[in-house]
Write a protein that binds this DNA or RNA. Structure first.
Length: 319
DNA sequence: CGCCTTTGACCAGCGC
DNA sequence: GCGCTGGTCAAAGGCG
């Protein structure tokens, strides 16, 4: 599964020439000083000829193209880094899974075997798994438990809550301390739709207390709440309607929400590489980009500075 | 007042 | 049958 294109769209556009540094001393002289690089064409004292103007525009276009190229390179590097990190994470999870696989013998055979199944399935980015054994054991619940998936969520070190923010609404209906893990396990039901059969179990990882292990059972019979509301309501990309997203919070500063799922039918989850070519996905990405940009205070500040700067310059040249 | 969380009780499955 | 364990229920209380 290649999620290289599913990255946080909150890009630092590195628009330093435009950025107004808040900590920089502001004096009357520097307020009207425009970086030479960004000096707009209309700043020429004498009215430029059409040729000059065309040349200046071409120059500007070249500069923008160059900037675009640099940004593309930065994005590529970011994607590479992201993939490398993700692979490392998956390696760690694989190792943890093997550890549990060879752990102390479980009294409850079925329970342990189910755990192993899930751990193995988890190796492929918390994919859905439904075994024949599981289905045959509980024929009555096969509809509900047809799809199970597992997600690992990194939380703050001091965060003791068992809340996994995946965009859905959950109602907690129970909590239990299990034998295998001293951390309590919380039981949630999807409360977004009354008839939604999806259940979720959240428990801290026995190896890493800062990691929440969320096990989802069933399939939502309603659209994702964040998709129904506004596309920018959630901080991350929440395209999937099946809840197996993993949110990786890195040191509290930046939140990278990785939605490791894809579609309603998690059967094709294994081979499902996000189809960024699909027009709706593209549109969604564009919307996400726009949303992220408009939410980015750096970007809005830079934009405001650029606009106000130009207005000031226009006034300056007029007077 | 409605929704959510907490928590003890209850139930079912499993091994001995 | 008994004990252990995981999962669920439901009453009570908190909160906005």
């Amino acid at each position: 599964m290649d999620n290289s294109s599913w990255v946080d769209t909150s890009l630092d556009l590195n628009i330093n020439p435009l950025r107004v540094k808040s900590d920089a001393p502001v004096d009357a002289e520097s307020t009207f000083r425009v970086p030479r690089k960004m000096k707009p064409t209309f700043m020429f004292q004498t009215k430029p000829s059409a040729k000059e103007e065309t040349g200046a525009i071409e120059e500007e276009l070249n500069r923008v193209n160059e900037e675009n190229r640099k940004l593309t390179e930065m994005l590529t590097v970011m994607c590479d880094n992201y993939n490398a990190l993700r692979n490392q994470l998956m390696d760690c999870m694989c190792k943890n899974g093997e550890k549990e696989l060879h752990g102390p013998s479980k009294k409850r055979k079925s329970a342990s075997s189910n755990n192993n199944d899930n751990n193995i399935a988890m190796n492929g980015n918390s994919e859905s798994s439904s075994t024949d054994e599981e289905l045959s054991k509980k024929p009555r619940e096969e509809v509900i438990k047809a799809k199970t998936s597992r997600a690992y969520v990194k939380t703050e070190a001091g965060d003791k809550s068992l809340i996994v923010k995946d965009g859905y609404q959950w109602r907690k209906y129970g909590q239990k301390v299990t034998r295998d893990n001293p951390s309590p396990r919380a039981y949630f039901k999807c409360s977004f739709a009354p008839s939604c059969p999806v259940k979720k179990k959240v428990q801290r990882s026995i190896d890493d207390q800062s990691v929440l292990v969320a096990t989802y059972e069933g399939e939502h019979n309603h659209p994702h709440p964040s998709m129904e509301a506004t596309s920018g309501s959630s901080h991350g990309l929440t395209l999937g309607s099946v809840p197996c997203s993993a949110s990786l919070a890195s040191s509290g500063k930046t939140n990278i929400t990785l939605d490791l799922t894809n579609s309603k039918s998690s059967n094709d989850a294994k081979s499902s590489k996000p189809k960024t070519d699909a027009p709706e996905v593209r549109q969604f990405l564009v919307e996400q980009m726009a949303s992220s940009l408009t939410k980015d205070p750096n970007f809005t500040a830079a934009l405001a500075a650029a606009i106000s700067g130009r207005m000031l310059q226009q006034n300056h040249t007029k007077w």
